[in-house]
């Protein structure tokens, strides 16, 4: 295959599949597009499975419960990183931004979080579910902050264009 590949000529020695090593700009763009589509679907599947595993194991299997919670947290972290990077460049989906910039949303998330904690303390609600619910609310508040940041970046870009 030496006529196809010249891998010795470059400094990058990466041999993993998910890599853009030695690709030209056109190939990179295609590669990124495939990766992005995969990421989108994989994210939802991971979130669903980690949540399902948490519900199944809560109160029965501590090791699995902790692991599934960590996986759930990892899923959310990736989501937050995506939101942070997209908002830093001002390339967040405009509809998503429009739907998530209302002040009442943060207030509602905080209320839901407090409600779940109070219900769990009163033994009305499962304590494990209160934990995962509160965590989800905190993540949603964080996403809301990045949506606002996206708006600020767009505003700045508009001002600069105006100047």
């Amino acid at each position: 295959m030496s006529n196809l590949y010249n891998t010795e000529e470059t400094e990058n020695n990466s041999a993993s599949l998910i890599d853009d090593f030695q690709l030209d700009e056109m190939q990179k763009a295609e590669n990124y597009k495939i990766g992005f589509q995969m990421f989108k679907v994989l994210f939802y599947i991971v979130m669903f499975i980690s949540y399902a595993m948490f519900i199944i194991s809560s109160g029965r299997n501590t090791a699995m419960m902790v692991l599934s919670f960590v996986l759930y947290a990892c899923g959310w972290t990736v989501y937050i990183i995506y939101a942070a990077k997209a908002s830093a460049k001002g390339v967040m989906n405009p509809t998503f931004v429009r739907n998530n910039t209302k002040d009442w949303q943060v207030f509602a998330y905080v209320c839901f979080m407090l409600l779940s904690v109070i219900l769990a303390l009163c033994d009305i609600y499962n304590v494990y579910q209160a934990v995962i619910w509160s965590f989800t609310m905190i993540m949603l508040i964080t996403v809301n902050c990045f949506v606002r940041r996206n708006m600020a970046v767009l505003k700045k870009q508009l001002e600069e264009d105006g100047e």
């Binding site: 853009d20 992005f36 990421f39 994989l42 990736v78």
Partner: peptide
């Protein structure tokens, strides 16, 4: 293009993390 690049890099990380899990 920017969006795809972000997604691609996150897919790479996510794949290895989820595989480990």
């Amino acid at each position: 293009a920017e969006n795809h690049e972000i997604g691609f890099r996150l897919f790479r990380i996510m794949f290895f993390v989820v595989l480990l899990f």
